[in-house]
């Protein structure tokens, strides 16, 4: 019986170490790959930090800055600014916006920067946040986005002043 007990203890140790080692290895690999490569989109600050050149396709996400949304005369082209509260990028989009698209709400767009630092999107997805509330009320943790320099304060959105 003593031998049986030792073998069980041995299996316990081996199995525990194996599970911990595999989990640790996978998590280390994920963190080594870095947040950006595994993220669905870049936020405006990251776009500026990486100095992504015009014409390169990527996804840009953040909040639709309140007061920046406008519709062009053709009725199909929209202009708005995506902000992460630290940096802004102006966006133009021609197409249908999802129902949940609003100012002050999250959005994920896909497209390219043009020569003047405007992001020309061909896809716009609405990203709803984790807050739920009945109509007419405000959620407990409403997005409190206070821009450090005020919205549209001329944060480096033109390529000349970038970097």
């Amino acid at each position: 019986m003593a031998g049986l007990k030792t073998r069980k203890k041995q299996r316990l140790v081996v199995a525990s170490i194996a599970v911990a080692a595999i989990a640790g290895a996978v998590l280390l690999v994920l963190f080594a790959m870095g947040g950006d490569s595994l993220s669905l989109f870049l936020q405006p600050s990251a776009v500026h930090a990486k100095e992504i050149e015009a014409g390169k396709r990527f996804r840009l996400g953040g909040l639709v800055a309140p007061g920046t949304f406008s519709k062009a005369e053709d009725g199909l082209t929209y202009h708005f600014t995506i902000t992460d509260c630290a940096a802004d990028i102006p966006v133009t989009f021609k197409g249908l916006l999802p129902d949940l698209f609003r100012e002050g709400q999250g959005v994920v767009t896909e497209g390219r920067l043009n020569g003047t630092g405007t992001f020309v999107a061909d896809t716009v997805l609405a990203k709803h946040d984790e807050n739920y509330a009945p109509p007419g009320t405000m959620p407990k943790n409403a997005e409190a986005c206070t821009h450090p320099e005020g919205l549209n304060s001329g944060y480096n959105t033109s390529p000349g002043s970038r970097g």
């Binding site: 947040g35 595994l38 993220s39 996400g61 990203k127 807050n131 959620p139």
Partner: peptide
């Protein structure tokens, strides 16, 4: 950990659920 389209947790979060009791 990453930017996702899926929203973060509403119920199992440190500062309590971000949804009303009803």
């Amino acid at each position: 950990w990453w930017n996702t389209l899926h929203q973060p947790a509403s119920v199992m979060r440190m500062d309590g659920p971000s949804m009303p009791v009803e």
